[in-house]
Each structure stands twice: as C-alpha cells, then as structure tokens.
Amino acid sequence: MDLKINGLSKHFGLQKAVDNISFEVRSGEIVGFLGPNGAGKTTTMKMLTQYLTPDHGEIWYGNRRSTENTDIRRDIGYLPEHNPLYEEMPVLDYLNFCAALQGVPPSEIPARIREMVRKCGLDDEKHKKIGELSKGYRQRVGLAHALIHNPKVLILDEPTTGLDPNQIVEIRELIKELGREKTVILSTHILSEVEATCDRILIINKGQIVADGTVGNLRRQTESRQIIRVRIEGPSQDNIYQALRQLPGVTMVDLVNREDQRYEVQSSSEEALNRQVFRLCVQNNWVLLEMTPTETKLEDIFRDLTIK
C-alpha cells in the first residue's frame, strides 16, 4: 500500500515538533527515518499510526485518507519506541489478544501465531511471561505483535535498540524480507543500519526533511569532497606531510599512524586526488605503499545536514 504524506505539522505547545513534512513511500520500499534525537521522527510515526492527530496536513493510505478512519489501523503494524508490552501476560496470550483486536478471524489466529513465533524466533520463550524475557526477546515479541495481522504497512520506531549484534543481523534480515512486499518505515539513529536495510533515506532535522534519497544519491550530493587513505614511505615524514598539504585543493591532512606512515587526505579539488598524490610521490621518489579511496561516510553526510 502506498503512503502519501502531505504538509504534515504538529505542535506541542509552542514547540514545533514536525514542520510541514511531505513525502511518499511506495509499496515494497523500505524507508529509513534518520535524525538526531528530538528531530521529530517519533512524532511523525505517531501521526502515521493515528496515535497523534496532526495539526495540519494529510496522510493518505492508498486512496483512503487518515482522518479518524480507524479501519486503516488494521493495515498498519506498529512497533513503538521503548516497545511497551503487558509484562504480566504470557507471550502466546498476548499475541492472541493482539490478533483478536486487529480483527484476525478466530479460525486463523492459531496459524498466524504459529507463523509469528517461528518467524520471530520465539519458540523457546513462548510460554513465558513477557516480563521475564530479555530485551532481545521482548523486541521480537514487539515485532511479532506488529506483524500478527499481516499488515500492508509496517512502522518501526528504532527496531534494533538493545539487541546484541547477532540479533541485530537477524532482525534486519527479517525486515528486509518483509520489505519486499510491504511498505516499511523505520527510524533509527544507527547509520550503518540504514545503509544495511533501507532503500531510501529521509533525514529529518528540527521537524523538517533535509534530505530524501537513496544512500548512493545522498553520497553523490556531497561527493564534491574526496577522501583517500595513503601510506607513503619517504626519508622525512614532515616533508611528506607538508607536501601533501600543499597539493592544490587539499583541505585536510591527518597523520593517522606515525609508524605505519599512514595519512588521511581530504580534498575539494576538481582533479582526482589519487592522481595528484601519485605524481607527488613520483616527483620526490617516495614509495607509495598503499592508496585507498574512502567513500564519503554516511556519518559525514548526516553531520553536514543536521548540524547547520
């Protein structure tokens, strides 16, 4: 189901939490919401799930408009931030309860629960009370209840917080698999997560969208900057350092490791930086041991866009 958001705004008192946001998400797309804390990610998600009513703007689910059309919620699976759950309920009872609320026909509920238990890896813990589970398993229960009614749209607020690295990989795989047929929006402030799972990134800052595109696209936008890592063997490290600094367009040289003679060079020059460095070494008869072009990191893009 396609999602279309048009001029969405929400104020809390005098504070603008979300300020005139518009974007679209198509079916089969995984979109990552990225932004510093307090940027408006959670508020936007709460409006998408109808928990909060927007002050202005429209949200369209396919051709249905989300204004108190509560039936839309049956097409949405939502994992809120902090993943609140009924601690005193056993996992299976809880999934049963959620399925009933979401209108899964009673005859299909047992099969759906079995599928969720298998998919989310809850088999060993399914009879325990939720309060007895570790954080990772709680997160799986959260995902399981968000998915129990086979929703077309999945909204996940920081789905991998508190998980260990293995669990993170598992959950990401699950999200990717789901993303093939569903519309998925997830928020995170872990940048590698976005790169690993999302088709598209929306960077939000101070309630506004500051970037929208694929990881590659965003890179190209900020690609005016080149970064390479080099190892150069020569008689004097100071000379090498100075020579690198004096290359046209070079903005920063960093001696990363003195023993290894490893440098990081940043340049905003038009000319390819690796050619310049190579020629420099030839001229001075230095040995170029290693040269690695580094892609602009997502961290840098993020910093650029959100610190202004």
Partner: peptide, 14 residues
C-alpha cells in the same frame, strides 16, 4: 505510564 495505551490505540481500538 507503561505506554501500552499507545499499543491499544494504534490498533483498531478507539
């Protein structure tokens, strides 16, 4: 307090 209200009200419950 625990936030489960959000779970309920984002399901088809008014």
């Amino acid at each position: 307090k625990t936030g489960t209200l959000e779970i309920l009200l984002t399901k088809a419950v008014n």
